[in-house]
């Protein structure tokens, strides 16, 4: 059994020379032009439909996986104001739905400061150094002063502050402010 491996014209089925899609005869009598135009249209609608499916699923996935940007975290009562001194203490803030470290102090009577403990560089946990009065990051050495401002190291900005509210002698901490 011998197999004829020559390519054939996709319209009339006669062998073609080279690797053309259609034969010279079909081109000559104009059948090729009509047929190829029709094929192009069908091919494009195929690609279009596939593209739509793709975009649809991608959109579905992104919409589903992208976190909804809701309001800032809820206010959380962290105790009476006189509990806080001039020295920072680390508070477990859960108002955003997950545990988050927030450094809180009473800077001067009635003035509360609250900073997120994630370093503004790559979010390592910073540590409050009470003798030097600064926040130090153990990862790449960023340093912030007691007001959360960046003073050394690679961080591009200061620590992220949190919402603070004082009511009835109690301190409330809210979500992180950008």
């Amino acid at each position: 059994m011998t197999v004829d491996t020559r390519l054939r014209c996709s319209i009339c089925g006669n062998p073609v020379d080279g690797d053309g899609e259609v034969c010279a005869d079909c081109i000559a009598d104009g059948r090729a032009e009509r047929e190829l135009g029709r094929r192009k249209f069908l091919r494009n609608s195929l690609i279009g439909a596939m593209g739509l499916f793709g975009v649809g699923y991608l959109g579905l996935a992104l919409k589903n996986l992208f976190p909804a940007s809701g309001p800032l975290g809820k206010l959380q009562n962290i105790g009476p104001i006189n509990k806080f001194t001039n020295n920072y203490t680390l508070i477990d803030y859960t108002g955003a739905g997950f545990p988050d470290g927030v450094y809180v102090r009473q800077k001067s009577p009635g003035v509360i400061q609250a900073f997120d403990f994630h370093c503004a560089h790559l979010q390592c946990p910073v540590q409050w150094n009470s003798s030097l009065k600064e926040f130090q990051c153990p990862c790449h050495g960023s340093v912030y002063n007691a007001n959360g401002q960046h003073i050394a190291g690679p961080a591009p900005r200061g620590l992220w502050p949190h919402v603070v509210k004082i009511a009835n002698g109690n301190v409330y901490i809210g979500g992180q402010i950008d």
Partner: peptide
């Protein structure tokens, strides 16, 4: 420990 109370260095 999201609060890193043991001062682990990443």
């Amino acid at each position: 420990d999201p609060l890193n109370k043991a001062h682990y260095v990443p």
